[in-house]
Design a protein around this nucleic acid. Structure first.
Lengths: 211, 211
DNA sequence: TAGATTGTTAATCGATTAACAATC
DNA sequence: TAGATTGTTAATCGATTAACAATC
């Protein structure tokens, strides 16, 4: 069994990926952990420790090959694999996400939206159909669904997540202001709690005003 | 000078606030750190440590008064203060945020959106006007702007953030896939990097499949 | 080769958990 | 009062940083 890699490390990997992508765009071929650390405002030590959780991607005296490291991190994050996403709730947030074209470039395909609102059902966003919520069960049974994005009010989110769990969906991208119960840790949940994010912003504004 | 409270603690405060709000809705008057810890799947010790950064809100042998603690945490997070927000970029994400009514309940007022797209300029969302991006400077000078939400492509986000910094805006709610440069730590930035969130989800899906 | 920079071990720092005296 | 539960100190755990031998 591989040693468990801490979520603190995982949280940083997409950021490395982003910076390396930017370096490729700038035509940079190689970079040392030190130079990258200056760009990213982190320590070189942390970069080397983080990367070495997954293998030795660098070379002494040379540093890291940008393109190679970029690709390796992409594989670590599973961006070379296609993930099918369904969006539960075709309101403002659900539609906003469905409109993001960039997710597809990194392997995330939105294959359907669901809603209970008759005004929305049947419409399409970028060619992705908004289905009747009542068709959810049938759809999940007949399609490969890797991730369910929950973009609906909290009560509805709880209800639909239990339905989806029953249907075998294991990964949730949760925008609702509630925690998805995950007692036995069999689920994978990523929360995007916008109101909590705003509250932290508010706290830090006040703290700075006081200092 | 007050001792600095770690961001690890701050990150958890809004979640306490949410659970306490739910308890109020359920009519619960008091709760012990132990009972709350079971609900939230954290340790009672952590709850008590976290709260005691800000003061002793409980009572031995009794626990915590739910309503009182809820209000105190609200004050700590500055939810009793009105924060004016402008949204830069009235695309899908900007509009989705403008449509969130719940933010107002906790003191966040969206007072304007800005965009360069002539099709959008002049329209309104929930009575909030979409202004011409060219009017941004004038608007910021004539209004109290506490927070700028950046919901626009990365290059535009970088450009508009430097303009806003010049105009004295200090707090950013950043949805763009880029880091706002904050060399001297004079800014407050909360990032909502959706693609990074998705990548973590993807990593954890793969990890679980392997285990 | 000499210089640069990694990979990795050891040291430090900070955050979490445990324990318990204080006290309601 | 006895029981419950806090506030807080001490112990533990984990994450970050420093240091340096290995090596390209």
């Amino acid at each position: 069994m591989d040693k468990e890699i801490s979520q603190a490390v995982i949280r940083r990997m997409p950021r490395y990926y982003r910076y390396l992508g930017d370096l490729i765009d700038k035509g940079v071929e190689r970079i040392s952990s030190y130079d990258l650390s200056v760009m990213m405002h982190v320590t070189a030590s942390q970069i080397r420790q983080d990367l070495n959780n997954f293998g030795g991607f660098g070379q002494q005296g040379y540093g890291y090959n940008v393109k190679y490291l970029y690709e390796e991190i992409g594989k670590i994050l599973g961006l070379n694999i296609v993930h099918n996403i369904i969006i539960i709730g075709a309101g403002n947030v659900g539609q906003a996400i469905a409109n993001y074209v960039n997710f597809e470039r990194v392997g995330f395909n939105i294959i359907a939206l669901f809603d209970v609102n008759p005004d929305l059902i049947g419409k399409s966003i970028r060619g992705i159909e908004i289905h009747d919520y009542n068709e959810l069960e049938e759809f999940v049974k007949n399609n490969k669904v890797d991730i369910a994005a929950l973009t609906l009010p909290k009560n509805a989110a709880v209800e639909s997540s239990s339905k989806l769990i029953e249907l075998g969906v294991k990964a949730f991208w949760n925008f609702a202001n509630v925690d998805i119960e995950n007692e036995d840790n069999s689920l994978i949940v990523e929360n995007v709690h916008l109101s909590e994010s705003l509250m932290r912003l508010s706290y830090n504004i006040i703290r700075q005003d006081k200092a």
